[in-house]
Structure formats: C-alpha cells, structure tokens
C-alpha cells in the first residue's frame, strides 16, 4: 500500500472521507433539520427569530471578536457553576441556535457567559450597556475590567438639543459636545439585549439522577 501510488492515494482519500463523513456529515444528518418547537399552551413556536437589528448586531459582535473572551453556551446545572453564576437555569441545547446566522459558542471564559445576557440580573438598559461599552467599567465597579470601545461612539458637538441616546454624565463634563452611539453600537446593544434562551424545551429539562436511599442495596 505504501509503495503503490494508487492505493496510497485511495487510503488518504478514505482517511479524509471517514473524518468528514464521521463528524460533519453525520452531525448534519442528525440535527441539520432541527425545527422550532411549537408550544400549544402559548400558541407560538420557539426559538423566535431574532429581530433584524439584533441579527445585524451579531455581525458586529463577531467582527469585534467578542467570542475570544465570552462564551454563549450554558452547561447543565450539575456541571460547573453556570447556573449558580446566573448565566441560565438550564443547559443550552442545539435548538437554541437554529436561527442564529453565526452562533458564537466560544471556547474561553475570560469574561462571563452571555447566552442569557439580555435577561441578566441586575438588568441593564440600552443606556447602561452603552456606558459600559464606552468606558469599560461595569456599573458599580471601580476598575476597568472590560476593554473600552470608544470607536463605537461618535464624539460630536451638540446642535440644538443633545441626542436622546447620548451618554449621560459625559455630556456635562464636555460642554457643547456629546458622546453618541454609532449605528454599529446600537445594533450591538440590541443584539446583547436579545440574548435570551429562557424557554424550556423538552430536551433541555434537567434530569436529576435518582439517588439510592441510605442502606439500600448497592
């Protein structure tokens, strides 16, 4: 086989096909056609499609490389501290992502998981998120823990009245100027606010293993 060129190449091709067929294609066969779950009780299906502005925001999230530090996948309650940290009450499942153009699962938690950041506690409104992105300071914290992203904002003179979404607090320090979120910042904020996987699918329910009673036969 090693000497015969033809069979050697057949072997190489087989190695590629086995890997490709074994993982991408098999997984695609299994979950490639995953449909939304229709809930009779609520007369609607889940997950819901993200609003267009949030879908555009995901592109900003992707192009800034937020995924380098933030995951968007909650592990099941007895596997890690995800639930205890308030990142989500249930594990993330494949169905959560079917309407996401480019799911940002991530593989590093230098910052918190964001799978349910839109419904985080304490809640943060659009203005709060904008302040945070601009300054890098989480409300209440003293130090900068997140890189500030001033390039997502316009620093421009106030003509007439200040823009309704101009950052509060910064306007006063620099009279006649204001810091206003750009279009990209607005879509990113809308995306962050849309992150919510609260709906409980049948496959996402946490199964608590039955613990044998004390003294029972082991």
């Amino acid at each position: 086989m090693m000497k015969n060129g033809f069979f050697f190449f057949i072997g190489l091709l087989a190695a590629f096909l086995l890997g490709w067929g074994g993982i991408p294609l098999l997984a695609h066969k299994q979950i490639g056609a995953l449909a939304p779950f229709y809930d009779d009780g609520e007369s609607s299906s889940f997950p819901t499609r993200p609003p267009g502005v949030a879908a555009r925001g995901q592109l900003v999230y992707a192009d800034l490389g937020c995924v380098a530090c933030h995951t968007q996948q909650v592990r099941r309650p007895d596997f890690g501290s995800d639930k205890a940290r308030g990142w989500g009450d249930r594990q993330s499942v494949a169905r959560d992502y079917i309407f996401q153009g480019r799911p940002q699962l991530g593989d590093a938690r230098i910052g918190p998981d964001l799978a349910n950041w839109g419904v985080r506690k304490p809640p943060l409104d659009a203005g709060g998120i904008a302040q945070f992105l601009y300054s890098g300071v989480v409300s209440g914290a003293k130090a900068v823990t997140h890189p500030p992203f001033p390039f997502l904002f316009d620093d421009r003179p106030i003509v007439g009245e200040a823009a309704p979404d101009a950052l509060v607090g910064l306007v006063d320090k620099t009279p006649r100027r204001q810091i206003v979120p750009t279009e990209r910042a607005r879509t990113l904020i809308a995306y962050l606010q849309s992150l919510n996987n609260a709906y409980e699918y049948p496959e996402a329910r946490h199964v608590v293993p039955v613990v044998a009673k004390e003294g029972a036969h082991k």
Partner: peptide, 26 residues
C-alpha cells in the same frame, strides 16, 4: 480537501446553528 470542505459548509453555504462550531472543531 479539508479547506474546500470547511469553507463550503461554513462560508459559502453555511450549515445551521451549532453544526457550525461542530464543523469548525473538526
């Protein structure tokens, strides 16, 4: 072969949802 398979399934005709990270992992 790898590069063509990956870019077809991820960039030109993207598969849905978590299949993307699965394929990227592969």
């Amino acid at each position: 072969w790898l590069l063509i398979a990956a870019q077809t399934m991820l960039l030109w005709s993207p598969v849905r949802g978590v299949l993307q990270p699965i394929i990227d992992g592969w």
